[in-house]
Each structure stands twice: as structure tokens, then as C-alpha cells.
Design a protein around this nucleic acid. Structure first.
Lengths: 339, 339
DNA sequence: ATGAAAGCGCTAACAG
DNA sequence: CTGTTAGCGCTTTCAT
């Protein structure tokens, strides 16, 4: 009813076999200096013979350097989240960290204690992928309890401006949203509508700012769930309205939903209607027609989040942002309005 | 340069504050019987006051019941993998387990030691989402080292038939692949082609079996990578061939790629060409045109994998498969060949 | 119903 | 360069 057979080899077994103290073994497995080459070799041989592998729990407990990150998120299947996670994993693996992932329910309420409960122990390093109320709450809770061991991605809108930014990593989707909106305007569209993802994304701000700058009153935002299906429904009325010629969508999935709805409503794209998404998900370029969207380097941001966390943990050289800036990728779902 | 401020409260702090021994506190946090109600209340109050939370590493080290699973996989962004992971997470959370995820590089070679390295300690419970050589290798390595603490999903083709199935959980995609093939044949297609995902999936076997049963020699399989783009390229020649009227694709992404290629080649779907995918990913129903595909309950399988693992760990009632069987979902990318 | 003692496997701080 | 001594915070097992 239980796991394996005999008790796994411990550091003491290795020590005995190599004829050294357990401490020397510890030094070897931690690549510490001050070990004679011959000793090191002998220990390594013993390790190999015994199939010894260090016990992570023991290491953590004994207070060695931290080697794990917990990622808090609500939905691993959303493109942005999944990619960010990938980036974190990549970077963490390179650094020899293991990744714990804790998925929260977007429809539940979490107390501070509930959030802390998700860490392996108090003060454990964490990265929050914040894009909704639940994750934003988790972010705040950890921010207060362990500011030195927290990094969050996203949520630009969620924190006060004066707050130091040394614990957050995000893409400037606001600026690019404004750019996308201006691009549509410049092609002759008189108005640009916005179909919003559930998260209060700053891209919405960029959109309305750009409209305001152009002297246009932003129309009412249409809200959608995260799924393609939800978007298709939410946008049904919008696409049916012949006066609507351009829709900016909170992400690619919503854009696909809009495209579907437009097709059903008999409106051609981009002839009757221009549609722009956010994410540049893998399908965007291969949709029929290919989707105009915004390239968002979530994977890079994930890497950046990990690097920043590690920096906070261990010091060392300041990590510099290394991800691509958001960029508008014009494909075939956008064009001038048909006159 | 380090985490939080003062040392987090330990079981001893709680004990002192509640005026009991640390052992009693342990009993309380483990819901053990044999604790007076008043004592229990007092301890709980102390826990709340101090904001105490048990340290997972210490618990694990001390040999308490295991409360974590490590999931080994190669790609968290593939639909099937992501959904399976979701299912595992859901079930694990319900059971109070934490989920460790270890993502392997599909293009690397891993020794047995490399695989074991990814577990927090020897004998730690693991679930392998096996769908390529790397994960299949990990599955075998763990199978040998710790048969009692391993469950794998997928990989029906990877193990000998006589092997007991008490550690694997999978969808019967072979049968449904045969059914899909027969469905195409029954509509009048003389031949059905297959665009394969990199993984040696049993759906390919189902396809060729169905053709053979119908007295048709299966055409050469066309191989594709996992991405939509790769599929579009891999299928370019196939879709350009007017004698090809039906293509079964290894998954939905490949199908989207084929649809894209077909569009570029000027072949109409389903008039000139029928296309069927696997997965019923969220986009399938909303593609233009909606994709005929196979519903695969990965999330259910993920749950099932966790339940099975837990059963192996703790005994208890036999978990029964609770996921949906694969089912063909006919939408608008399939039909009779144009005569 | 509660407490005391021992130890899980490891690292840290000190001795040599 | 190497060994010794203390814990880390918790759960056993055995007393009481």
C-alpha cells in the first residue's frame, strides 16, 4: 500500500560508503569548494553506486538556499497564463528551481490565510499571475506578508502608481491598445468598439484614451467571458449592427468568437467589419482569415518574473527586462471600412 | 536580501501559547481524535492568534502522510496536456494535495537519474502525462523505481498488453478513430488520409485498422509537428492533390492547419475535402466552418489519474473510471465527397 | 487525554 | 581541507 521498497540512501549511507563524514558529502552535492578532488571523486562514486539523491524537504527544512517557487494562478488553460507559466518554468528549470503550481478557483473568495496555505511554508518564494480579483487578492496578501519573496505579473492597474515596481513585471498593453485603436481610426473608421475580457485589463484604458484623444466618445464596452463561445454570444448584437465597423477584442479567443458571430450574421471581414485581437496566439496566423492582433511576449515576461524573484532572493546583478515589447501585427481581419 | 521579517510561528510557539505540549498541537492540526474539546479550542485560538501554519517540508520529512503529487510532462501548452493537468489539479486540490509540476524538454535525453531528480524525494508520488518519447521514458523509469507511487496517462501503445493496468489511465482513442474513419468511408470517400501528431498515438492504429477492415490499403501517413503552422506546411501537398477527399488529423490544431492550407489551395471544405480533428478544443465549435472532431475528456482523465494514485497510496475503495468516452462530434468540415 | 523522547535528512556554524 | 555538533519543524512511538 505504500511507495517503494527499502529506504532510499541518505547522506549518511553515502558518507559511510565513501569513508568520509556526512558533511563532506553535503559539500560535494552542493558544489562547495574546499573538497579535495580525490575525496570528491570518491564521494561521487558512492553517490552513483547507491543511487543517492538529496531529499528536497530535508534541504528546505535545514535552511539551505531556497530552490522552489510557487506559482499562483486561476486558469492554466488561458493562453496568456499558460505561456507565462511556461516562461517561469523554463527559467526556473535553468536555475535548478522546482516549480510548484497552485491553481485557485476564480469564483471563490480567499482569505489571507487561504492564500498563505498554498505556499509550502511561510515566506516561500511566490509568483502570482494576476489577472482577476482572486489573483489580485492573493497578490496583495503576499505583498503584505512577504514582500521580499513575491513577484507578480500583470495587474498594472491594480497597484498605486507610486508603488515601487521592483516586484511586478508586466507588458505595456495600454500603449499598444492605443496604437491599435489609432490604426483603425487612421484607416477611416469613425468609431471603434471594445469587447472586454473579464479581467480589468489596461488595454481597455489604452483604447478609450486613444478614442478620447481623437475627440470620440468611447462607446459602451461590451463584456464577455473568457471563452470563444461566450464571446460569440456577447458580440452577437454588436456584429449585427451595420454601423459597427471595427471591434477591438480583449484577446484572440474573443476575436475568434467575434469572427464566428460575424460570419453567422453574414458580415464579411474585413469588408464590413474589422476585428483585432490580443495575444498573437498560435492559431491567429492560421485562422481563415488570418487575425490582426497584438504580439504579447508572455513567455518572456514569465522568464522575467522568475529572474526578478531570484534577484530579490539572492541579490546579484539587476535583471533587466528582456522580453519583446507588444507589437501590432496586421494581418487580414482589419482594413478600411467599405464605403 | 531575504524573505520576511521575524521567524514564522512554529508548533512550539503555539503550544506555549495554548499551554499544552507541541504534540497536542500536532494532534489538533491533524484532526486526530483523543483531544478534549476545550483543549482543541484553546489550541485553535492560539493558532489563529499567531497566524501559525504548518511547514510542509517538516511534515514530509517527519514522515507524515504524503500530500503532494509531482506531474511530469513535456508541454503544458498543448490542449490535451493542459486539460489533463487541470483535471489533476482539480482533484488534487479537493483532496488537499499540492501539485508540483515538472516540465521536461521534449528534445533532450533523460537518464533515469535525471528523471528521479525531478521528484522532491525518492518515492514521491508522481503522475506522468505520457505522450512522447521523453515522457514515456520517464514513465518507465518511475515504473521500475517506484511502482507503488506512479500513475501515467496516455501511452496505451507504450506498454505490453499483459501488463496490469492499475497504474495507467487513458482514453480509448483507437476505437473512436476507427469509428471516425468508418464514418467518412460510409459517406462515400474511397480513401482516408491521416496527418499524424509527433506522438505515436493509438488513434493512428484505429484509423489504419478501419481502412484495412474495409479492404483499403492505408496510404502513407503524413507526419506533422504539434503546431498549426507545422501542420499547414506538412499538409500542403496533401490538400493540393484533388484525389484526396478526406483527412483525419491527429488533433484539432493540425486540423486547423489543414483547413488553412486547404483554403490557400483553393479547396472548399467540406465540398472538396473533409477534415476531422481530435480533442474538441474550445475553438473547434467556433471555427469557420465549425470543425468535426472527437470529444476527448482529458480533464476527466486527469481527475481519474489522481484518484487512482491516491487509491494506490492510501488504499480505500476502488476508484472507478468516471470520464466520458470519446465521441465523434460531427459539425461542418465533413460530408460526402463532391461527385 | 496528554506529554516526553527520538529521529526524518539535511545544512550551518564551529572546530580542528 | 575535513569532522563534530546543533538544530530546522514536524510526526512518529512510547509513556503516563
Amino acid at each position: 500500500m505504500s511507495a517503494a521498497g527499502p529506504r532510499p540512501a541518505s547522506i549518511f549511507d553515502v558518507a559511510k560508503r565513501a569513508g568520509v563524514s556526512h558533511q563532506t558529502v553535503s559539500r560535494v552535492i552542493n558544489d562547495a569548494p574546499m573538497v579535495a578532488d580525490t575525496t570528491r571523486a570518491r564521494v561521487k562514486a558512492a553517490i552513483a553506486d547507491l543511487g543517492y539523491r538529496p531529499n528536497r524537504s530535508a534541504r528546505t527544512l535545514a535552511g539551505g538556499a531556497v530552490r522552489s517557487v510557487t506559482v499562483l494562478t486561476t486558469d492554466t488553460s488561458l493562453y496568456g497564463t499558460a505561456e507565462t507559466l511556461r516562461g517561469i518554468e523554463d527559467a526556473a528549470r535553468d536555475a535548478g528551481f522546482s516549480v510548484l503550481i497552485s491553481v485557485m478557483d476564480p469564483d471563490r473568495a480567499y482569505s489571507e490565510a487561504d492564500v498563505l496555505e498554498r505556499l509550502p511554508h511561510d515566506g516561500a518564494p511566490a509568483i502570482v499571475i494576476a489577472h482577476d480579483e482572486v489573483t489580485a487578492g492573493a497578490m496583495q496578501a503576499l505583498r503584505e506578508r512577504q514582500p521580499g519573496a513575491l513577484v507578480a505579473t500583470g495587474g498594472e492597474h491594480l497597484v498605486a502608481e507610486h508603488d515601487s515596481a521592483d516586484w511586478r513585471v508586466f507588458l505595456d498593453d495600454r500603449t499598444v491598445a492605443a496604437r491599435a485603436t489609432r490604426y483603425l481610426l487612421s484607416m477611416g473608421h469613425k468609431q471603434v468598439h471594445y469587447l472586454a475580457i473579464p479581467s480589468k485589463a489596461s488595454r481597455q484604458t489604452g483604447w478609450s484614451d486613444a478614442l478620447a484623444d481623437a475627440g470620440i466618445t468611447p462607446p459602451e464596452v461590451v463584456h464577455s467571458g473568457w471563452s470563444v463561445g461566450a464571446a460569440a454570444e456577447a458580440a452577437a448584437a454588436l456584429v449585427a449592427d451595420p454601423s459597427v465597423t471595427a471591434i477591438l477584442c480583449g484577446n484572440d479567443d474573443l476575436a475568434f468568437g467575434v469572427l464566428h458571430a460575424a460570419h453567422r450574421a453574414g458580415r464579411s471581414v474585413p469588408g464590413d467589419l474589422s476585428v483585432i485581437g490580443f495575444d498573437d496566439s498560435p492559431l491567429a496566423a492560421y485562422h481563415v482569415p488570418p487575425l490582426t492582433t497584438v504580439d504579447l511576449d508572455f513567455r518572456g515576461v514569465g522568464r522575467g518574473a522568475f529572474e526578478l524573484l531570484r534577484h530579490k532572493l539572492e541579490g546579484g546583478s539587476d535583471p533587466r527586462p528582456s522580453w519583446r515589447s507588444p507589437e501590432l501585427v496586421v494581418r487580414e481581419t482589419s482594413g478600411p471600412p467599405r464605403q
